[in-house]
Write a protein that binds this DNA or RNA. Structure first.
Lengths: 344, 344
DNA sequence: TTGTACGCGTTATCAG
DNA sequence: CTGATAACGCGTACAA
């Protein structure tokens, strides 16, 4: 079975009895073409089922029409939302999305640079923690590869980025618990290589400080944004004496794990221990009770970031740092603490 | 800030004092090059930080080194595993993965064809339900675009594919419930546009038939593989009088929804109602109780399918239809039914 | 308004 | 073993 050779711009030109250049003009909607010629060319294109050869176009325009999405093994729901937003913006555009999950950005920056170079991308979207990597950014800039960042926490003012205020959001979450009457509030940090983990810790600490609640280091546990890591951390917190009456997990996966850990200990949520998550990912609605959480508009963020990236590719002015609003969603995993046993 | 022009094969040739063709030979590991020349060229490449221009290579070789992954808004965990498997196999290869989620394969096949044509792909991986679309397959074959299919249920023997035995798996799941003593077993079907939904229903019916349990149509509800749709379907089943003592959901998202619905009704799982899922996705371990489910090796399937696709691209023989093993994972969401009230 | 000549960076052909 | 030359398909510069 031979593949029949794909028809080229020359074939179309012959059939329409014009020059190749004219066909090119019609394709790219350039001016100075008679309407009659246009329609003739269009018909020829249709008849030959002509599709421009992207490689050839790319060669002359030095464009690949490929945009890379760099991320690092985060939770499935995060990746999916990220891709959804990016693809949504790309709909109808000529650009295609190449997914580039990397093992560890910090470990081998040069390897990633090589990957990006060889991938012949027109631009890249950087998700955390790549979005905070100075070396990577420098290399990209040197290589002349435009990029936009999602949820950066540092090095702002260096090109387009979209983020939310992690500090304020975490503070809000903690204040919600404090307002309910909690005083012993544990926190489970996320992957330390993600700067958001620090930002969210800061928000937690600010909330405590504002209410004059002393910070206790044993109330701070570290996880990796995964369910498993959350399970381990939550068990540790619940084994304290006295245990916290509320736990703030830095993402929903770990919050779900906290609920599971509580159940293991025979504690019920929110009666014995309140749980608050972060992200409003699918999992927050799937577990029981549904999680009080901070909605992080990941899809919108990806959409906006891609939008800014396309603007850069069109040669428009570089966008700045956009901040998107978050929202505290109060569901059923948080409530007032049990009344303290009266002090005799 | 001017971007410095990327160095080309000619620059390398000049520096190494050889012809461009020789550089090309070294790059592609062609024979007939002196070791001395080789090393000289390699050094020049390193010095100039040379990376071949993929567009130019693609133009002459008529290859884009792009592989598309076509899928249709399935559950996040499924997509992620799919991508993971495909990317895992692509690691170290020159090919890149372009994600192509489509709205509805059946609705506008021609649009999808156009999409694939314009995307300039070397090959495509078809996930359900695209993997069962005859028109799409015909077009791809006519266009000379190689493809491999994941979980096809029809049109086998038409090129590489990887699947599992959905009928047998569903039968096994149902038999597990029957063995526990259940007789009133409800089922929640998946999206009707996915052929797996029918296959799994057939397995369920076969299990009932084997045990002489009459099939009741009111025990069959339809969902769309989403949590929300599962919630609606489960509520319906649980509102029956008498309600089923066990429910088989055709994926884990809907099984999780069934657990939630049971809790709404004040029923506990598995004491009042057993729940069995399908896929062994993350969600099956995150909900409480963890779900008894069928492990579907999605990641392996994608890996294998990609492997077969690469073989085709290398010009090797087309692979056939591979069947991967499934496995019933018994966890805590299934157990024996409550003893029937004694018939006086 | 339309066409011609040339170049983009790489590889295949064929000669040396 | 190595190199000159001609493609690959399209867009740019310049003519006509």
């Amino acid at each position: 079975m031979r593949k029949t050779r794909r028809s080229t711009i020359v074939d179309v030109a012959k059939l329409a009895d014009v020059s190749a250049k004219t066909v090119s003009r019609v394709m790219n909607n350039e001016p100075h073409v008679t309407e009659a010629v246009k329609t003739r060319v269009r018909e020829a294109m249709r008849e030959l089922r002509y599709t421009p050869n992207v490689a050839a176009q790319g060669l002359v325009r030095s464009r690949s029409y490929l945009i890379g999405l760099v991320y690092e093994k985060p939770s499935p729901s995060y990746v999916v939302e990220l891709q959804k937003g990016a693809l949504e913006r790309l709909h109808g555009e000529r650009f295609r999305l190449v997914v580039l999950p990397v093992e560890s950005v910090t470990e081998r920056e040069d390897e990633i640079i090589a990957l990006l170079r060889s991938a012949a991308l027109d631009a890249v979207l950087l998700a955390p923690p790549a979005s905070d990597n100075a070396a990577l950014m420098r290399e990209l800039r040197e290589g002349g590869l435009p990029f936009a960042r999602i949820s950066p926490t540092r090095l702002l003012g260096q090109g387009p980025s979209v983020a939310m205020d992690d500090v304020a959001a975490a503070q809000e979450a903690a204040e919600h618990l404090i307002a309910l009457g909690h005083r012993r509030i544990g926190i489970i940090k996320g992957d330390p290589s993600h700067a958001a983990a620090d930002a969210r810790l800061v928000g937690y600490m600010q909330a405590l400080a504002r209410s004059g609640i002393p910070l206790r280091t044993e109330m701070i546990e570290s996880g990796l944004f995964t369910f498993e890591s959350g399970l381990v951390a939550a068990r540790r917190l619940l084994a304290l004496d006295p245990p916290p009456t509320a736990i703030l997990a830095q993402n929903d996966d770990m919050a779900a794990a906290t609920v599971a850990a509580a159940r293991e200990c025979g504690l019920s949520v929110p009666e014995d221990v309140s749980v608050v998550g972060f992200d409003d990912s699918d999992i927050s609605r799937v577990v029981w009770p549904p999680l009080t959480t901070i909605r992080q508009p990941v899809e919108d963020m990806a959409y906006r970031a891609m939008d800014m990236l396309l603007a850069v590719l069109r040669g428009e002015a570089e966008g700045g740092d956009v901040l998107l609003a978050h929202e505290l969603l109060i569901r059923r995993s948080s409530g007032p603490p049990r009344a303290e046993p009266p002090i005799p």
